[in-house]
Write a protein that binds this DNA or RNA. Structure first.
Lengths: 213, 213
DNA sequence: GAATTTCGTAACTGACCGGTTACTTCCCCG
DNA sequence: CGGGGAAGTAACCGGTCAGTTACGAAATTC
């Protein structure tokens, strides 16, 4: 219509458009959940339009699953980039804990997304082919840390890697997932830098305290 | 108001109707979130009708807040009923942990509700007058346990009661909150009795491990 | 038993929403 | 350079949903 040629901007860039849609969808889904999110709003925010969304992702639910898989993949990518295998057991474990904590702090949309998906009993994630394989390498790393720590006598025995990772995840995730209700209940601003720092130290203490022989 | 008339028939029972609406709303909100829940569905399930919902609760959001406050109140009531003050410090702490865990297991709607409220940045809860006072007695109990444990030398020093309770809550809440995604990722049915039991023991170990001097 | 209040039903409204379609624009390649 | 297909636009559609209202029935009060 009134649009003529906004410079070298408007040309065909399928993957850019796709990326923009995913970014917009992540924002919208994280802010309002699956049911609360509006496809029109995503289209507007992405700078593209609804037709492209339905072209690339089929429907709202297809878009949801893609956004979700992307979020998991990015998290695991970052986590995997750390060379924990070279660290001393205690150092490595603390690093894992702190990474997890900081990641949750840095990516509130990740948290919102996971909570929404759990509301749906992970029904979308269950159909994903890619998810399971993402976490196998992580368990390998943890198992290795545990074994080395046990061998050198700094860690207790009989620790299930899945249990331990769940606890690490819990300590970071829960704090940020429930930060608003917790802040309200306790009348403290738990999002402040000071509170976050204190909480991260406490969390590491908990993990390492538990791992002591 | 009028009352004291049970009446076995379908006579007027405002508080029963109110209760039924709240039950139906809890179910619907927990299953689908605030945006996903349907007022018509709540009306149908309650055995009452929309008109009564708007009469008693004003609008969907008013109903949401009431459901939320009710859920918190019921949780705290149960928790408060335990006479932890009489228990030995370690025993009391373990009891708190286990109660919390079991409550989350028994009340998945509670978890869904809190997550949804956090998605909204606790905007409804913030307007609630009743919430803050619910948690003061709990902190008193924890502080008392901590002091006694420290005095008798079974607990470490410098533990913030809010930190500790947050960790207790995290260990139980996170597990059930994320049970579907975790089960998918790790390929284990974490809702099974066996897994739950193991997880509860692990969680107590973590708390008590941390509290060791 | 009449007046008044409470409860119930169902139709209604106006906004909204996921998804589709008709149509235009633009790029690429022959 | 021109035709075909991909990318993009906006109107549109059928359905849904929160919230309202008109009206009648029943219960309570006086």
């Amino acid at each position: 219509m009134t649009k003529s040629k906004p410079a070298a901007k408007k040309s065909r860039q399928p993957d850019v458009t796709r990326r923009n849609i995913l970014d917009a969808a992540l924002y919208e889904f994280a802010a309002k959940g699956l049911a609360g999110a509006r496809v029109d709003e995503i289209a507007a925010r992405s700078g593209s339009n609804k037709r492209m969304i339905y072209e690339y992702f089929g429907n709202k639910e297809g878009l949801w699953l893609t956004v979700l898989e992307n979020a998991y993949a990015r998290m695991r990518e970052e986590e995997h980039a750390i060379d924990v295998a070279r660290m001393k057991p205690e150092e490595g474990m603390r690093y894992l804990m702190e990474f997890n904590f900081k990641f949750c702090s840095r990516n509130p949309e990740f948290i919102a997304l996971l909570n929404a998906e759990n509301l749906h009993k992970a029904s979308y994630l269950k159909d994903s082919k890619k998810i399971r394989e993402l976490y196998t390498p992580l368990l390998v790393v943890i198992t290795d840390l545990l074994q080395r720590g046990q061998k050198s006598g700094v860690f207790r025995k009989n620790v299930d890697p899945v249990d331990l990772y769940t606890t690490i995840a819990a300590l970071g995730f829960f704090y940020f997932s429930n930060v608003h209700t917790l802040s309200t209940i306790f009348g403290r601003n738990l999002l402040s830098q000071k509170e976050q720092k204190a909480r991260m130290e406490h969390s590491s203490d908990v993990i390492l305290g538990y791992l002591r022989p």
